[in-house]
Design a protein around this nucleic acid. Structure first.
Length: 300
DNA sequence: ATTATGTCCTGCCAGC
DNA sequence: TGCTGGCAGGACATAA
């Protein structure tokens, strides 16, 4: 559920709260939360130091260093590069929370990480257990990302995102525009909410075939994606309920600014026509039937 | 190869 | 009141 803006809010919190701290111990309370991990997660984490918190799309990771922060190679004098990272995906209901170690276990606490300084724990709480944590090696790429997510495309807020290349790949697809937007190997970080909001901003119906989209239309769509995500980030993300929270358990309030998502029968903020909900991939798509007319050659 | 569908979970809410 | 079905912001494996 958390999409790029919500994950970025969490990343910023983690960067502030765990960077430079050394892990004393970890505890896995539900095996499903570490189903993609190879090895024993507590063993892999103990004694490691977190340098920062990074993100691509909806994935975030904490690069792990051996020993204390600021470690340098004794031969070269260069800072030691993180060989691996604690990788996390929040799934539909995952939360990474910073809480005092004495705080009683949350109902859906899955993994607990404690630090040597005795300060706040990092806790992974996940009602539906679609999210997960794992320790993974870093891939040696220009932009280093953990090995398991090398197939995840750049997200529209990172510098490495190539607008022209995205347009080219999009036009080669034979599918609907929303399905393409949700494909994390084409563009990452976009989920159901921000796909609907960006399409509304670009006045595109979600079933528009990708192969007919012109480069200017794709540029408008990317602007819509970036604008809605940046605005959402400025308001702490979208929280329909207490499931989507930052590391301190606080909700964002971008839900008030959504134009169409979850607003069936409410007036389109642009033209006043009631917003409609249509079934899409066992989910929902919200749109304005006047601003975003369904194309003749609609694609599922 | 790309594209579409099924599946993993728990909780909430509307409707009966 | 209590049950049931539908729905929820995701990603992956597998099938076509």
């Amino acid at each position: 559920m958390p999409e790029l803006p919500e994950v970025e809010v969490v990343r910023r919190g983690l960067d502030q709260w765990v960077a430079g701290r050394t892990i004393a111990s970890a505890e896995v309370l539900h095996p499903r939360a570490v189903r993609r991990n190879v090895g024993d997660l507590p063993d892999q984490l103990k004694g490691r130091t977190v340098l920062s918190a990074e993100r691509r799309g909806k994935y975030l990771w904490l690069p792990l260093y051996e020993g204390p922060a600021g470690h340098v190679d004794p031969v070269t004098g260069e800072p030691v590069v993180a060989a691996d990272a604690l990788l996390a995906h929040l799934g539909m209901s995952g939360q990474l929370l910073m809480v005092d170690p004495s705080t009683p276990a949350e109902k859906h606490l899955r993994v607990r990480v404690a630090f040597t300084d005795g300060g706040p724990d990092m806790r992974f709480v996940d009602q539906r257990t679609f999210g997960h944590l794992l320790v993974a090696p870093m891939a040696r790429l220009r932009r280093p990302v953990p090995e398991p997510i090398t197939h995840i495309a750049a997200d529209p807020l990172e510098e490495a995102f190539d607008d022209a290349a995205f347009a080219t790949r999009l036009r080669l697809r034979r599918t609907g525009i929303k399905r393409a937007l949700l494909d994390q190997s084409l563009i990452s970080g976009v989920g159901n909410i921000y796909a609907d909001e960006a399409l509304w901003r670009a006045r595109l119906h979600w079933a528009r075939p990708t192969e007919n989209l012109t480069r200017p239309v794709i540029a408008t769509l990317l602007s819509g994606v970036r604008e809605v995500m940046t605005e959402a980030l400025g308001q702490g993300g979208t929280s329909f309920d207490s499931l989507y929270v930052n590391v301190n358990g606080e909700s964002g309030y971008f839900d008030r600014s959504l134009a169409v998502y979850g607003r069936r029968d409410e007036p389109c903020p642009r033209c006043g026509t009631p917003v409609i909900r249509e079934a899409f991939m066992n989910r929902s798509s919200y749109s304005c039937p006047k601003c975003q007319p369904r194309p003749r050659n609609a694609r599922p």
